[in-house]
């Protein structure tokens, strides 16, 4: 398991992550969901031993990553966001090298090379140079290099970025398979759908802080039965607050001249009333969208902005 407690990382005056705490369990996938620049990669860097935390502790299977670095790293597998491969080597040579980096050799190494290339669907391309591979194949090989030594803890930093839908599905299956085999998986992504589909537990991270965490059900419960209603047009903020200020079923999340976001209980049944109230408040409505409770709507509710912004 991974235990992160009050993690803080500073780069000079910049605080990249601050007071981050969570626990990722064995045999489950823990997701770190947040927009680009939220601090996900910094968190992964501190857990993997790439970065030294400014404060806080990180333990991997009970080993402190700073004080017992070698023991912690030995059980870690890392699949970085970048495709960290040698393009001028073949797929087999890449996997071999990273296997050797984790101390594998001889028959065990050969067997693992075959295994990981097979499960990633690259066995028939083992002898081909990596710089001739497609983006999806490189991503799968990147994954293969991260699991060559059968790690008990697997860190995946946005492993599906820039991958075609087919390869993405295959990669997500591979990740799920690892968790099913008892591996503790920490998975970072800014794709809400991915997090919803694969993660058992999640922490939503923004500006270096964890703003919500729990299981998918727990997080969705924070939204209650409220839908997210996004309205485009022209708005008068004070009139809008006056119109909905005493309505318990409507909560204004954000509002500016051109767009308003509202959290509304059972919005679909209240749309006519809502539109009338908006018009009565001097608003001009050009477009209206209703979203069911989701991680995306929770993120918007918590931060006032979309995940991809």
């Amino acid at each position: 398991m991974i235990e992160v407690a009050q993690l803080r990382k500073e780069y000079g005056d910049l605080v990249a992550v601050d007071d981050i705490s969570f626990t990722a369990e064995t045999g489950a996938i823990f997701g770190l969901l947040g927009p680009n620049g939220a601090g996900k990669t910094t968190t992964i860097g501190c857990i993997s031993g790439l970065l030294e935390p400014t404060a806080g502790t990180v333990r991997v299977r009970g080993h402190d990553v700073v004080r017992e670095s070698a023991q912690a790293k030995a059980s870690l597998g890392v699949v970085p966001q970048e495709i960290a491969l040698y393009g001028d080597l073949s797929a087999g040579e890449n996997v071999r090298f990273w296997g050797q980096a984790y101390g594998l050799r001889g028959a065990k190494l050969r067997a693992r090379i075959t295994d990981v290339l097979e499960i990633t669907g690259l066995l028939d391309r083992a002898g081909d140079r990596v710089d001739q591979f497609s983006g999806g194949m490189k991503r799968r090989l990147n994954f293969a290099c991260g699991i060559i030594h059968e790690p008990q803890v697997l860190l995946l930093d946005e492993p599906t970025v820039g991958v075609d839908p087919q390869s993405r599905v295959r990669l997500l299956d591979l990740v799920r398979e690892q968790a099913n085999q008892g591996v503790c998986v920490l998975y970072t992504t800014h794709y809400m759908e991915e997090a919803q589909s694969i993660c058992d537990r999640l922490a939503i991270i923004d500006h270096g802080h964890v703003i919500a965490q729990g299981s998918l059900a727990e997080l969705q419960a924070q939204m209650g039965e409220r839908d997210l209603v996004r309205v485009s047009g022209s708005f008068d903020e004070s009139e809008l607050h006056r119109a909905f200020g005493h309505d318990a079923d409507v909560e204004i999340v954000t509002v500016d001249d051109a767009q308003a976001t509202l959290s509304v209980r059972k919005a679909s049944s209240k749309l006519p009333t809502l539109l009338a109230a908006l018009t009565g408040a001097g608003s001009e409505v050009r477009d209206i969208t209703v979203s069911q409770p989701s991680l995306e709507s929770l993120f918007i509710k918590l931060t006032g902005k979309e995940l991809r912004e």
Binding site: S48, G49, L50, A70, K73, A74, L76, V78, P80, E82, I83, A84, L85, Y86, G87, W98, A101, Y102, G103, C145
Partner: peptide
């Protein structure tokens, strides 16, 4: 630039 240096750092080597 390929990220292999960082990948080496996170190994036990």
């Amino acid at each position: 630039s390929h990220g292999t240096l960082r990948r080496v750092i996170v190994t036990p080597q």
